[in-house]
Design a protein around this nucleic acid. Structure first.
Lengths: 217, 217
DNA sequence: TTTCCTTGGATTGCATACAGCCACATTATA
DNA sequence: TATAATGTGGCTGTATGCAATCCAAGGAAA
């Protein structure tokens, strides 16, 4: 049911997100073909999919290049995700079924004592679950798309115990608002939660980037 | 700057939207290759792009098929677009610059006496402009993506003088709200405007589809 | 008559070969 | 020495051939 091209695209995407191909890297077809033991043709198709996902860009006759995160684009992307997830939270508060709410509360509870990797997965699951509770497959898809496009910079965020403490408080408040069917509070909390996370990521990215730049562009 | 594959994908996409390839049509590579005077390879890449745009789907070893509009998916899609454009309108009310507002008012004014084709283009331009006035490239991109995915069913909507009258009233009120910097009113009006349009499209689609269906699924 | 298997045709998926374009290096000139 | 012209290597874009897979038609068995 899932094509070979998609599997290949997943592997290449994962390699990009894992930092195996840093931003700006040229993904030459021959090299990847050798690496995967295939010919250029399936690699080419997988690269097209990777480009469609926004993780790389193809310049005609110049190959595909892993995208460099432009701060302006990242800012817009974080804001867009925050607003859309806030919208989903708002809708979820009105539409979620009882079983969903119980599962959500259970998940937040289990997140308390989870290892870093587990926590990361559970955090993703929490947000995805809320988006799906809005009962709108398109909004969930859009949110998922934005999350993928932000995944590369978000990977650097992990760890940070104090951030996690704060994040958990926000999660609890957010889930409580949804369970109370309070749409506007849920939206507001979700927006604030994601804005805080974005702030964190961007400030980290800023200090790990060039410390002193006087670029004119 | 724009690749050959993209141009091909545009042509095929346009053919789909124009009704040249009705939903369910199998787009076989050899046929299209002959039609465009090319080999299968570039056609294949263009079809991958068309699939990425959501206009068709590829089933492994079974070719690509023009997607049939599932009513549930369409409903979600219209709602998602309405909510996201409402969000854009809300942001636009707060962020638009003076020149934007003047251009918007001018556009609405010029729409009064425009031919059907012009009106269609101007309507698209109006919504796109408002989304870009939100000063968030990602939200504009997402809205544009949803509009493309809805384009096929929306094409059938054109004409309908009464709908246009009503639509114009809504446009004027919406633009006025944005110019007044009234974010909540702008969002509310945009949401209502798109919901009305969606209602129109879906009811039309429903009556042109099978009139009496007793499908169990 | 119905069901299952087989088999043929057609189409997709992949490999390989060739053509076109770009980037870098070398060389010639001011 | 700096700059412009040019040639070369390597990569991408396209064409074509072959293998793998699916679908439908036809025949055999119950």
């Amino acid at each position: 049911m899932v094509s070979n091209t998609m599997r290949l695209a997943d592997q290449i995407s994962e390699a990009i997100l894992e930092g195996d191909f840093p931003p700006g890297t040229r993904l030459d077809e021959s090299g990847l073909a050798a690496r995967f033991g295939l010919s250029r043709t399936p690699i080419r198709e997988a690269l097209a999919e990777v480009c469609a996902r926004g993780l790389a860009e193809r310049r005609p006759y110049r190959g595909v290049e892993v995208v460099s995160p432009d701060p302006d684009v990242l800012l817009d992307r974080f804001e867009a995700l925050a607003e859309i997830e806030a919208l989903c939270a708002s809708l979820a508060a009105g539409r979620a079924q009882m079983a969903d709410l119980l599962a959500l509360e259970d998940l937040v509870h289990r997140m308390e004592d989870a290892g870093p990797d587990e926590y990361r997965q559970m955090n993703f699951d929490l947000h995805d679950r809320i988006c799906r509770m809005a009962r709108n497959a398109e909004l969930a898809r859009v949110a998922d798309d934005l999350r993928l496009r932000l995944a590369a910079v978000r990977r650097a965020q992990l760890g940070h115990a104090d951030r996690r403490q704060r994040s958990m408080r926000e999660h609890r408040a957010l889930v409580a608002a949804i369970c109370d069917r309070d749409a506007v509070r849920a939206a507001s909390l979700m927006r604030a939660h994601l804005r805080a996370g974005a702030q964190e990521v961007l400030s980290m990215a800023r200090e790990t980037a060039q410390p002193a730049s006087s670029a004119t562009s």
